[in-house]
Write a protein that binds this DNA or RNA. Structure first.
Lengths: 334, 334
DNA sequence: GTGAAAGCGCTAACAC
DNA sequence: GTGTTAGCGCTTTCAC
C-alpha cells in the first residue's frame, strides 16, 4: 500500500517535533495564529519528507463538509452542453478545493433523484443541476431544508431559484434580421414540443412582428425528440406547396435534421433555404454547409453556477439570476 | 438546516432503546450477528421516524474508504464516448454504493494529474481512465503504490494494466469486404496521426491484403485533430487525379469531415465515394447521407471497467484484459 | 442477541 | 507561538 497507508498529521508533528495542532494551523493557514518561520519550515519539510497528504475524509468529518458538489444531469443530456459546462464548473470549484460528484437525475432505483440521498448522507455539500429537469416536489424538499443548489440551463426555469442561463432568446431578433436582410420572406421554426412554453416560439413571433412579418403557423413544426418523429415532422415542412425560405431550429439536433431533410428534398442551402440554430455544438462546422448558430457560453455558465453555489454554501447572500450573453455566429447555412 | 443537521445513529439507538452498535449491525447487515426481529423492527422504524441517513463521511473515516471512484478523462475527450461510458460506469458502481468523482487529466495546476492527489488524500478509492492519455510516470507511480485503476478505451494501450477495450479493428475486415462487394477498388484511410501506431492503418492494410487489394499509400491521410489541418489534408485526397472509391475514417469526426469535403468537391456519396467510420456518435444518423460505422459498446465498456475496478478495490485478482465486441452498422454512406 | 468503549485523522477552543 | 484535549459519527472487538 506504499505511502498511502500510514502517514497522518500526527506523524508529521512527531517528525517535526511539534504538536498536531501546529501542523493543522500551518496547513490551513489559520489567520488568527502566528507561527514562527522556523517552525513552519520544519513542519513543511517533514510533510515533504514523509510525503504527507491530509486525509480529506477525516477533515470532512470534523468540518461536517464533504468538500464535494453534486452535479446532476439527465441521462439523455446533450453531451456537448454538459461536458463544456462541467469544465467551467470544475475550474471554479477547484480553486476552493471542492470536487465534483457526478449524479444522474432519476435512476431506476431512486424515484426522486439520488441527489437528495447524497446530500442527506453528507456525500455532497451542494448541488448544481445542469440541463436537468427538476420536479417541484424535489425542489420544495430542497428549499425546506436549505439545501444549497443552483440551476444551469439555456433558458430561465421560471422558478424562484438560483440559476444561470443565457439571453439567447434575445438573439432571435438578430437571426430574423439576418434572414430578412438576405431576402427571406417566409420564416419557419422547427423544435421540440416545449418550444411553445419556454418562449422560443414566442420570441420568434415577436421578432417577426417587429420586422412586420407575420408568423405563419404552418411553418411552425414542433415534435418530440426522437428520430422518427423528427424525421417525419420536418419533412412535412418541405412538402408544403410553398416552403419557407428560412428556418430557425430550436436546437442543434433539430438543425442537423432540418438540413438533412432539406437536402434530401433537393433544396439548396442556403440559396433556397436558410437554417440557423439555437444553441452550440461540436459539429456545427462539420455539416455541409456549416451551420449558423446562436452560440451559448457553456463554460462560463458552468463557472458562474459553481461560483454562485460556493457563495451559497458559504452562507452568503447571492444574486438569484445570472444571465450570460450568447452570440449569433453566421456560418454557411444562412 | 432541517433534518440534515442532527440525526446520528446515536439518536436512532436512543429512540429505539438499543445501542449504537445494534443500529450499525442492522444497517450493514452484518452476517455474523443475529438480531431479534422485534429489535430490528424497532430500529428500522426509529430510522424512518427520525429520517436518519448514515453519515458517509464518518463511515469512510472508520473504514478508511471514501466510497468514491475517480473517473479521469482528457478535457478534449469526445463527449459522446465519455458520457455513454459514464452511464455504464455509474450503473455498475451504484450497486456497490460507490459514487463517481469526476476528474480531468491534467489541469494547469496539477502537472501530473490530480488523480494522484485525490487518491493520496483519500478522496477516491480507485481510478478509471476513460479515453484519457496516461503518461508512464503516473502509471509507474500507481503501480508502485498498488493504486487500483482500470483503463477504458477503444483500443488496447499495449501496457501491462487492467483495461477494457473493443475488437473494432477486427471489424475492419468486414468494412473492406463491404466496400469491395459494392465494387470499390481504391480504398483509402483518413484519421489522426497516431493511426499508424495504434494499429488502425495496419489493420486496414491486412484486411486489404486478404482481399488481394494492395494498400495505396497515397490514399492514407493522417493529420492532427483540428479544423484547419483536417480540412486541408482531407481535401487533398479529392484533388488526386484518381480519387479513392471508398474511405475508412478513423473516427466519427474524421468521417463527418470526409463527407463534407467530398460533397464540396461535388462527389456523390455513396455512389462515387463510400465512407465508413470507426467509432460511435450521436450524429451518424443526422448527416446527409447517414454515416455507416463500426459502433463500439460504450455503455458496456464503462460497466465492465467499473466491475473490474470494484474487484480490484476488493483486493481480488481480476482478468487484465476485457475485450468487448463492436458492430458494423451499414447506413447510407456505404 | 446486545452493549460498552476505543479509535479512525482531523480541527479548534482553551490553556499556558 | 505552541500544546492539550475533546470530540465529529461511525464500526468493531470483546465482554456479558
Amino acid at each position: 500500500m506504499g505511502s498511502k497507508k500510514g502517514v497522518s498529521s500526527r506523524d508529521v508533528a512527531r517528525e517535526a517535533g511539534v504538536s498536531q495542532a501546529t501542523v493543522s494551523y500551518i496547513l490551513n493557514n489559520v489567520e488568527t495564529v502566528k507561527i514562527r518561520p522556523e517552525t513552519r519550515e520544519a513542519v513543511l519539510s517533514a510533510i515533504k519528507k514523509l510525503n504527507y497528504h491530509p486525509n480529506q475524509i477525516a477533515r470532512g468529518m470534523k468540518l461536517k463538509k464533504s468538500m464535494s458538489v453534486g452535479v446532476v444531469t439527465d441521462r439523455n443530456v446533450t453531451n456537448f452542453y454538459f461536458m463544456k459546462t462541467l469544465e467551467g464548473i470544475r475550474d471554479a470549484l477547484m480553486k476552493h478545493n471542492y470536487s465534483i460528484t457526478l449524479l444522474f437525475n432519476r435512476s431506476e432505483d431512486h424515484a426522486d433523484g439520488e441527489f437528495i440521498e447524497y446530500y442527506s448522507s453528507n456525500r455532497i455539500d451542494g448541488i448544481i443541476f445542469a440541463f436537468a429537469s427538476l420536479d417541484d416536489s424535489s425542489l420544495e424538499y430542497m428549499k425546506e431544508r436549505n439545501v444549497p443548489f443552483v440551476l444551469v440551463d439555456t433558458l430561465p426555469s421560471g422558478k424562484d431559484v438560483h440559476e444561470v442561463y443565457t439571453d439567447h432568446l434575445n438573439r432571435i431578433t438578430e437571426v430574423v434580421s439576418h434572414f430578412v436582410s438576405k431576402g427571406a420572406g417566409k420564416i419557419g421554426y422547427v423544435g421540440p414540443l416545449k418550444s411553445r412554453n419556454d418562449g422560443r416560439v414566442e420570441a420568434l413571433r415577436q421578432a417577426l412582428e417587429r420586422k412586420g412579418v407575420p408568423l405563419d403557423e404552418r411553418y411552425i413544426v414542433l415534435c418530440s425528440i426522437n428520430d422518427e418523429d423528427m424525421s417525419g415532422s420536418i419533412s412535412s415542412l418541405f412538402e408544403l406547396s410553398r416552403c419557407p425560405d428560412a428556418v430557425l431550429a430550436g436546437s442543434p439536433r433539430f438543425g442537423f435534421y432540418t438540413l438533412k431533410r432539406a437536402l434530401e428534398h433537393g433544396l439548396k442551402v442556403p440559396d433556397e433555404l436558410m437554417v440557423t440554430v439555437l444553441g452550440s455544438s461540436n459539429y456545427h462546422n462539420l455539416s455541409h454547409p456549416a451551420l449558423s448558430a446562436v452560440e451559448v457560453p457553456l463554460y462560463q455558465m458552468g463557472f458562474e453556477a459553481a461560483r454562485v453555489l460556493i457563495e451559497l454554501m458559504g452562507g452568503k447572500e447571492v444574486e438569484k439570476k445570472v444571465v450570460l450573453p450568447s452570440e449569433l455566429v453566421i456560418r454557411d447555412s444562412s
